[in-house]
Nucleic acid binder design. Sequence first.
DNA 1: GGTTAAACGAGACGGTACGTCCTGTCTTGGC
DNA 2: GCCAAGACAGGACGTACCGTCTCGTTTAACC
Lengths: 209, 209, 209, 209
Amino acid sequence: MASTGKTLDQPARPGRKRSEDSRRAILVAASELVGEDGYGALSIEKIAQRSGTGKQTIYRWWASKADVVMEALAMKADLHVRLPDTGSLADDLRDVLTTSFSLARVPLVSDMLRSLMAEAQVDPAFAERFRAEFLQRRRNALGLILDRAMARGELTTGVSVHTATDVVFGILWYRLLAIPSPLDDALAEEIVRLLAPGPTGRGSGRREP
Amino acid sequence: MASTGKTLDQPARPGRKRSEDSRRAILVAASELVGEDGYGALSIEKIAQRSGTGKQTIYRWWASKADVVMEALAMKADLHVRLPDTGSLADDLRDVLTTSFSLARVPLVSDMLRSLMAEAQVDPAFAERFRAEFLQRRRNALGLILDRAMARGELTTGVSVHTATDVVFGILWYRLLAIPSPLDDALAEEIVRLLAPGPTGRGSGRREP
Amino acid sequence: MASTGKTLDQPARPGRKRSEDSRRAILVAASELVGEDGYGALSIEKIAQRSGTGKQTIYRWWASKADVVMEALAMKADLHVRLPDTGSLADDLRDVLTTSFSLARVPLVSDMLRSLMAEAQVDPAFAERFRAEFLQRRRNALGLILDRAMARGELTTGVSVHTATDVVFGILWYRLLAIPSPLDDALAEEIVRLLAPGPTGRGSGRREP
Amino acid sequence: MASTGKTLDQPARPGRKRSEDSRRAILVAASELVGEDGYGALSIEKIAQRSGTGKQTIYRWWASKADVVMEALAMKADLHVRLPDTGSLADDLRDVLTTSFSLARVPLVSDMLRSLMAEAQVDPAFAERFRAEFLQRRRNALGLILDRAMARGELTTGVSVHTATDVVFGILWYRLLAIPSPLDDALAEEIVRLLAPGPTGRGSGRREP
DNA sequence: GGTTAAACGAGACGGTACGTCCTGTCTTGGC
DNA sequence: GCCAAGACAGGACGTACCGTCTCGTTTAACC
């Protein structure tokens, strides 16, 4: 999740190098401020003051305060997307769900996620970056799992891979954003049951009359 | 969807009455501004100027600009929640879904919905009002439908009513907020298939055991 | 020296009146700051902070910080231009000179004068206002005295009224701006002798050969 | 007019020599920028950019942007002070005046002069350098002329040499700074008449008694 | 001829101030 | 008491420069 991508692997530019210290201080300050007063009270001005940097340094490397938070989140939480491959849709799905849910249960992480999604509604340019650098990556991971399941004939519920993905992320985000409810293993199990009904599960006899 | 609830059905107060003209002008101005420049560029100042009213009048009757937009949305779109009762989960669900989807396809409506959900992430007090006055009402309607289906034994997918509700609204909001995708009849059908898998296809023969 | 002249004696405008308290606080703060750190370190931001007002209030009523200082100077020192009329050029001139010099010897006043003249070199719009509201008024006063002397035949040095005015203000400003030297009665006397050589003075016999 | 005097005639140092190209490019850029946007819009940053040099190079050799302009002025105009010695105060004075006036009539030169005087009001350290390196030199030249006239008994107006100098430079600077008026031969003649009133008119017959 | 050191273009850095916009409150006079 | 108008204190915006500090390169003098 590079901030700009300006460096095209040709660091042979003149001038002083970007300060890694400042970068870290800014991300830490942003994290702290979101945790203390919430994203609504966050301002570039406060980040600069708290981190002991100049506003220009923030504007130089990030396009908006949401981008700072997005990178702070990446630094804070290991957002690396796991790609389980157990050979069973139910198991793969359960793995992805419990991993995602446990991350979303960390208060600071969920606060940041909610803030980023909110900002994306209001700032179209950031929405694009948020989608490309965050949302789509997770969709792709789940999509791969579902594609494999589809190939194995395990996706028997009559919904497309795309829609199944929407169901999974839909419920995750809806519980984050709309009606705060627990994202626990019981919910994960319900979703697994819904999307990957086992041969002896709920719908076993339904489809083979 | 009263704006504040200040008026306690006791209009026997002295002084000038609230101006209905101003109220309407404010809501119209808010609608127009959201349509033109987006919610991000909306400000109380601009609403007052556009509507030819004073800022104080807005602050007097609404708690925040999000509340203005929420009322503007209510004025704009008929948000009355339909409560179908066909006796079949699939049909009831399809009815709710297509109604909701067609509303969400109106650009201004979806813009406002997205804005309100965004604001709710950043302003906890508004989040409470938004939940109570908007989100929960729609959950309750769907909940009633699902409760009836449950009683008839139609909810066979092994998910609770609560979770099924989350699945429905989850996918709706996710497509609004995260990955803009069509909210069409095909999607409605997929969701019906997922949550109300009929033994011999949709609807047919369901009622004659 | 009205700041804007917006009020055209028709105060029948709606809205809150201009706060006289804020106006005074701003002028006092500007005076103090010029006295403490000099005009070079003066900023709108500091004036606002010191005076306990908002920057907008300053920008609303003054076009630049130089205009604030100009009005602060008017408030500080009695800049009312005396118009002596003794019937003698020498006496009139001496009166104007000693009055002007004694004002210019007040450190804060001279600091402000120098700052305003400096700003006028760099900000053409302010230069116009400074000329019209300050410099020209004083020129006019001296011009009147010299016109009267001319009519009485006392201006015998062969310089025009315009040039004589320039000589007087030239030396005043030059000593303020360029080579700090005392502006005392001795200098006044020298200028009187130069421009109004009395009948028994230096040039008495010069012109009647 | 050395820029800093850092080089103490001991060039026996290792390392790269000062680049004459950069020096010239900086002075030219400063001239151009003052001519285009005025001294008020001048900044070290723009000089560096325009001249294709680094800011550090400017800071290394000049103490402030005013010092750059002062040196640019010296490069631009021949500021060498003429020292006429005709044996007649009127003629010497006229020579100095017309020379100075014709220089001050060059727009860019007068703009620079005004800027430097303005900066001197706001930056005491620069004021010192400006006085020593520019103003005082011209005073000294005129002082010499007047001293000689005094010795010859030509200074009959009853003003000291110091004051007479102030009269000359006062009117010059006043017309530059305060009330833009022409600095032409007519004015020079008036000043000559004022300070060197010849018994039978200007210059005529004075030298061949 | 290698070493040392200063000057150079470039540009990031911590800061300060700019002038604008908006917030939520207060004040005024009219309805 | 509501309303339009608008002034107020305050805070943040995004930009421009300040003067300083790396960078890697170039150019001399010295050893």
